[in-house]
């Protein structure tokens, strides 16, 4: 074989290998694209709710998705195909986390809605009576009563915001605001000389 023939053969072999690689690549592109589209849709479907109930887990899922999208951009289709099942499992785990967090917060919210309105009513009843008194009880100044009245207004506003958050399916905010009302109520009851229910002490 002459050197020229050898060069020609090598060139043909190289071209053939490139063609095989190209064909293989082309074969993988469609399934990689489909897998990526499917997992992207799965991530998108939980993004809103996960941003409320599991923001850190969501960030990890979004990072993994970005990694797969970058691999796809680099034509690393096999890597994408291999990575999608793992990300799909991560999305399923995220859904589980959301569910358990929602259940946990739902229990807290139920306790708040069952107990807090009665507490606020009791405070309002006492504040309304004290506002009618010609003289305040020993140890209570008009400033303390004014502060309790303000506290009651703040509690009512915070409870309204908590209820609005719950109605918007954001139990994280609802419970956080409800807990604020709880601690405000304990403070106001103490300043009015009222017995604080044990649930407010937690």
């Amino acid at each position: 074989m002459t050197l020229n023939t050898l060069r020609k053969s090598a060139w043909i072999a190289c071209l053939a290998a490139t063609l095989v690689l190209f064909a293989a690549c082309k074969d993988l592109k469609t399934p990689a694209q489909q897998a990526l589209d499917s997992v992207t849709a799965a991530v998108n479907s939980v993004t809103d709710v996960a941003s409320i109930y599991a923001p850190q887990d969501l960030a990890a899922v979004q990072n993994a998705l970005t990694g797969l999208q970058q691999s796809f951009g680099l034509k690393e289709y096999q890597k994408v195909i291999d990575g999608v099942p793992q990300l799909t499992a991560q999305v399923e785990a995220l859904k589980g986390t959301i569910q358990s967090r929602k259940a946990e917060l739902g229990t807290s919210w139920s306790a708040l809605t069952a107990g807090l309105p009665g507490v606020v009513d009791a405070i309002k009843g006492r504040v309304d009576i004290l506002a009618q008194a010609k003289k305040l009880p020993a140890g209570m100044t008009p400033e303390m009563l004014a502060s309790a009245q303000q506290g009651l207004a703040d509690m009512t506003a915070a409870w309204g915001a908590a209820t609005a958050a719950a109605n918007a399916d954001n139990l994280v905010d609802a419970v956080a605001k409800g807990d604020q009302v709880k601690s405000m109520a304990a403070q106001v009851m103490t300043s009015l000389g009222m017995q604080v229910p044990p649930a407010l002490a937690n």
Partner: peptide
């Protein structure tokens, strides 16, 4: 009835 621990009734 209020749930356990939440009763704010003031007694004397």
């Amino acid at each position: 009835l209020p749930p356990e621990g939440w009763d704010a009734t003031q007694w004397y």
